[in-house]
Design a protein around this nucleic acid. Sequence first.
RNA 1: GGAGAGGUGGCAGAGCGGUCGAAUGCGGCGGUCUUGAAAACCGCUGAGUCCUUGCGGCUCCGUGGGUUCGAAUCCCACCCUCUCCGCCA
Length: 428
Amino acid sequence: MLDPRLLRSQTDRVAERLARRGPVFDRARFEGLEARRKALQTETEALQAQRNAGSRRIGQTKAKGEDASPILADMDRIKRQLADNEQALAALQTEFEDFAFGLPNLPADDVPDGEDEGDNVELRRWGTPRPAEGARDHVELGEALGQMDFAAAARLTGARFVVLRGGLARLQRALTQFMLDLHTQEHGYQELYVPYIVNADSLRGTGQLPKFGEDLFALDPANTGGADWRLIPTAEVPVTNLLRDEILEAETLPKKWVAHTPCFRAEAGAAGKDTRGMIRQHQFEKVELVQVTRPEDSACALEELTAHAEAVLRKLELPYRVVALCAGDLGFAAAKTYDLEVWLPSQNRYREISSCSSFGDFQARRLLARYRHPQTKKPELLHTLNGSGLAVGRTLVAILENHQNPDGSIAVPAALQGYLGGRSCIGR
RNA sequence: GGAGAGGUGGCAGAGCGGUCGAAUGCGGCGGUCUUGAAAACCGCUGAGUCCUUGCGGCUCCGUGGGUUCGAAUCCCACCCUCUCCGCCA
């Protein structure tokens, strides 16, 4: 969430920066809420101070063996008024929090202007895109190999799932191992294993709740003791929430974590989009990079993290481009985002395969994720970043489409062959 | 799933319903001493938040309710941890 103090003290500036995303900030509503909160909170805290002072006096009076009943009579009035005030304040605070939690992050100053996807700015390209002519798509290739089966998955579960067999199942595993090894051995990340089911507090911490609950699969409360547990939509949730309510020592920073998890997305509102193939599934594998830095280091860390994700594409010999998202296309919690888009010849265009974002202190504030400043010794909010490194399912799609041979077999990039028992080709 | 014990500051660990945000120890920071370090001694040392920024106020002792003028302390429910038993990949 945004800094409430900044919101109050520099409302103009905040409104201006939020306006770059579009009409997301109802300023009149904010100012109304804020005026009521201020009055009510000040009054309530004053009453609490009276109550505390009165109670103390009663204790002292009784200790001296004197009669405390005059004070007690006065306390009755304070008590009743306080009960009313506290109730009203709690309601108002809930309303205020709902409002504040609904506000997206401020775009970083160097984020390009723009309303939507069309205004994103391409920064660089790598590799030579394979022409669309003669290129079969991954569904055709996978099914012809007899190793990618959507019909079977539909029978097991429903739409937007897949069964992989033999070489392609192994290819997915190989891709995962390759990515983990690259990030841990060459890029300095620590590998984590984390729960795939998280509670509502964790989802609030990273910003999936309260706004985006419909995109998450929820467990039956009958099986959770009534708790609100969801399947993770990304490893970002359990990994970043490791910081919740923590105060880290400065010398332990930056934290660089990598985790491979399945990701579960209800994809509410995506009906009709990418219904063919493995591009948009309810369940997919992802290797996620997370960094936690001091505030002054987060800008560099984003460049570094993006380069780490790019390294995967290069080693897999997959043509891609890097795009800076414009203000209007930024995700809710992001201050700045680079998307990596891999070339898909069957679609004759680049498709997102990784999204690398800096969140500034937006997530850290919700999480109360802090570090102790070496000079002031005071806790200060950390900066969080993450990016896919990469989405494994989409990487598999890209491998198939970019490295297909005329006979329908798939050439295995050199970097991956060691993970496939030395094989250089996946065929029937 | 059953039985028992327990959740208090960075850690360990006290805490008769009444100046308790909380003894004490360790750790950390600063100082004295020292050529330097250690030891010893002295002092400081939780977090969040509000406003009229004051040597201010409020909130926080697993979570949520309740009793009370007043709750870390009493009552209820839940969560978690540990030990033992059962079950299980």
